[in-house]
Design a protein around this nucleic acid. Structure first.
Lengths: 343, 343
DNA sequence: GTGAAAGCGCTAACAA
DNA sequence: TTGTTAGCGCTTTCAC
């Protein structure tokens, strides 16, 4: 593989001149530049990435910290990761996918200290996240998908749960629904509270109040089995609710199934809208699910982009961005029932 | 950040001695070694990864080439990727997630030439894959998830479609099914034939023959909509079939829905088994789907492991591995119906 | 059992 | 506008 020195020799210039021609950090005579580029092409020259990284101190690698072990992986996750990888590539950066248990973050710190990592992106951020503290303490640049409670000096891309939830609730209210339920994971006994859960619930309560609807909270783990249980609870205590907003995607599969098994008709008897499933997941439902779809692409891309901008010392950044997502009306929502259940 | 020279000075030895203490490539007096490690600990020393890579010519980075744009991403994909990333980490390697259109592979070659990449893992391999040829031509080490037609000198981890399909068909035959259908994507007009499609269909035909069942092939794109169409075709032409084996995961959602809408009872009227969905996907079905689940974890890990072994010149490798997957009997299969349909 | 020194390929301060 | 040179931090050959 040809190197800088070979190019310089062939072009009849100094090695540094080749460097400057490449970076443009110094004016080079057009004619010289042409000779240099010709030489590079002739030799099929590729700058050595490791040498550049060593010399410049920037590896152009960012790690995407993926906490699998804890709560399993969900359909949507890949979209965030790919979006971040794509965005990183477009800036000449590379995304290292790093599966890491919450407690094994030290490993990442070590690799950052070793110069391998320029920065990191964290997913599944909890409101009071030890990992964030550790990265801050070690001065490792990072961005979040999600956000902590204290968000000063933090780069993040997260969902605007206030707006997303309001979009969902307003859709139902416009359809004439007055009594709503909100299906979500409980945060009561969890030490590491995920921001999404806490914020979405708070936002749902506020939006319902503002839009003049009643709201019952149904807490249930995000699994099909637990969703079935939640349906039982709903059938016992919340039958006057005609509209359900769900933050649980997996759980909603069980929840809807539970209602259907009891003879309920989705849309006709009860409207259901999910604010956290992918479009593919929504279409797998029968009937297809109305959603406020998380803009995973935009969020993943923003997390990568803003981290890279910070790494490069850009000043035109918007380090804290919120994304709402789009209301996609499919067939699981309809006008509030007025008479009896259709069962 | 402390470097080798600092450690050497503190331990009162030469820089090279520190290196040898670390690699063990040369005998070092126990007492010296102890002093060195003490110094490293005191200074919280981390070897510089970039310097090591530059000097040794091994970046310890492997790229996972993820061809998104073409056929969309599916639920199971993340599992392969994470497994590979995990396995790579356990060898001290890093997995770069590289979203790349089929035609943009040159980009990867460039980065390999630049010393950034030690090797690559390819997914969604077609029987006659240009990318494989290109990587071979450029001498870039790689492994495949899937395999090409000509598999000489190629490292791969793939599914054993013969065995997996036979497992599925045998399960049905044991339940008394004699007339089966196989649901899969057509390969007729596709230039880049994905190995899975071709091999699974061939294997299904062979297994049915061997086990004494008839087999109708139903070709349908792998989408819910096309699955619904396939169900119509099934209801028109294949009503004597009592068992269906599907290679399409997404498409099967539509297919099953189409049958159910027509009053068919899954399991009672027709048994359905899928050989390509995740366990999570199987549970989202109603009734839960019997599957021969692809061992994505094992396959992803093997692809990474064998590539790394080859990179390190190990000789105890098994570069070509096939994985069957496990038959998980859930509720979508049952004894073949004898009398009328239950509709 | 240990040390000295050359150099991997590139960048940037200094010099002209 | 261009050239010279000193390293970035590590490995490894050669020498003792």
């Amino acid at each position: 593989m040809a190197k800088r020195a070979d190019v310089a020799k062939l072009a009849g210039v100094a090695e540094s001149t080749v460097s400057y021609a490449l970076t443009g950090a110094r004016p080079i005579a057009e004619e010289t530049k042409a000779r240099i580029f010709k030489a590079m092409a002739d030799l099929d020259y590729r700058p050595n990435a490791m040498a550049q990284a060593l010399r410049s101190g920037n590896s152009k690698m960012i790690a995407m910290l993926f906490g699998d072990q804890e709560r399993g992986i969900s359909d949507g996750d890949l979209e965030y990761v790919l979006a971040a990888a794509n965005e990183a590539r477009s800036f000449g950066y590379h995304l290292i996918l790093w599966p890491v248990r919450r407690r094994a973050i030290e490993d990442v710190v070590i690799q950052a200290d070793s110069g391998l990592l320029a920065g990191a992106i964290l997913m599944e951020v909890s409101l009071d996240d030890d990992r964030v503290k550790l990265l801050k303490k070690h001065g490792i640049p990072f961005s979040l998908i999600g956000r902590t409670k204290d968000k000063a000096d933090t780069i993040f891309a997260d969902r605007d749960f206030e707006a997303a939830t309001k979009l969902a609730i307003r859709h139902l209210v416009h359809l004439g629904h007055k009594d709503l339920a909100f299906l979500s994971t409980s945060t009561a006994n969890v030490v590491e509270k995920i921001g999404a859960t806490v914020r979405a619930e708070k936002a749902a309560i506020a939006a319902a109040k503002e839009l003049g609807a009643s709201l019952s909270i149904i807490h249930s783990e995000n699994s099909i089995q637990d969703g079935l249980e939640a349906a039982k609870e709903f059938l016992k205590k919340h039958t006057k609710c005609t509209g359900v907003v769900s933050l649980n995607a997996e759980g909603l599969i069980g929840f809807a199934r539970g209602l259907q098994r009891n003879g309920w008709n989705i849309a006709a008897d009860v409207s259901i809208i999910c604010i956290s499933t992918t479009n593919a997941g929504a279409l797998a439902f029968d009937p297809p699910l109305t959603t406020v779809t998380p803009p995973a692409n935009e969020i993943g891309a923003a997390a990568a982009r803003e981290l890279i901008r910070a790494l490069e010392g850009q000043d035109d950044n918007e380090p804290q961005k919120l994304f709402v997502g789009e209301l996609v009306v499919r067939e699981s929502t309809g006008p509030a029932r007025t008479g009896k259940l259709k069962r």
